[in-house]
């Protein structure tokens, strides 16, 4: 048997060594982690407009993604009144860099409603048309879900969507991200009826309307309802801006 003293010494020395090694490794790899995270979220943004890109975002190299962002995409940040805000406002909200890509939506949705910032990307197509990419965030069955919704230049027709989730069940709720034939249903749907905002409804049992509804996912009713709620609330945040662009 070891004495209590030697047990404590052993554990202390061991913990110290392990903590030092891990802390060193963590801070050493942090720049790479940050770079990977930024690239991942850029690719997620692009996958909402993948139908309009020459290559699939998942197959793109890093410099390809970055040059797309630098040359073809304008980044804007809006406040809840639909006005564009300066980089300084974004920086003072706690996002160094001051661009739309620096905004952490998970933090934004926890703020009071009128203080939230909305990122917006405008993709300039070669033929002069524009695509608008909006961000939405809501709740699925287990945890948060979020997504990018791309609108055509008429600010009404959906050009593509890309959803993601934190912890939905694979094969059920996770289908919102994985099942291409499900989420491509959104392409071509409309969010306005004339001037009235309608959003897109995920209908359990099958869409009853060609323009404003898509089919639900069997076994994932709550996640699908979460998508409906997220789109309706999230897209409405952008309404003041969309109106000001249209007029």
């Amino acid at each position: 048997m070891h004495s209590t003293r030697s047990v404590i010494t052993f554990v202390l020395i061991m913990t110290l060594l392990v903590a030092l090694a891990l802390a060193g490794m963590y801070s050493g790899l942090k720049p790479i982690h940050k770079k990977n995270e930024a690239l991942y979220s850029k690719k997620a943004t692009l996958s909402a407009i993948s139908a309009h890109l020459p290559t699939q975002p998942s197959a793109m190299a890093e410099d390809e993604v970055i040059s797309l962002f630098n040359n073809k995409i304008e980044q804007k940040v809006l406040n809840m009144k639909g006005q564009e805000v300066d980089a300084s406002v974004v920086e003072s909200a706690g996002y160094p860099g001051g661009k739309a890509e620096n905004i952490d939506m998970a933090k934004e949705v926890k703020k009071p409603l009128d203080e939230q910032l909305l990122p917006l990307y405008v993709y300039n197509k070669d033929n002069g048309e524009k695509l608008y990419i909006l961000y939405v965030r809501g709740k699925g069955l287990w945890d948060e879900i979020w997504g990018c919704v791309a609108l055509e230049g008429d600010l009404n027709t959906i050009a593509g969507v890309a959803f993601d989730h934190k912890a939905e069940t694979p094969g059920l709720g996770a289908e919102i991200k994985d099942n291409k034939s499900w989420y491509s249903q959104f392409t071509g749907k409309k969010i306005y009826d004339g001037d009235t905002f309608k959003s897109v409804y995920v209908r359990k049992g099958g869409a009853k309307d060609d323009v404003y509804e898509v089919d639900g996912i069997s076994g994932a009713t709550i996640t699908a309802d979460g998508v409906t709620e997220m789109l309706e609330r999230g897209l409405e945040y952008y309404e003041p801006y969309l109106k000001s662009v249209k007029s």
Partner: peptide
């Protein structure tokens, strides 16, 4: 930590 740096997906 290594996987996060090497293969983020």
């Amino acid at each position: 930590l290594t996987l996060k740096a090497v293969d983020f997906e």
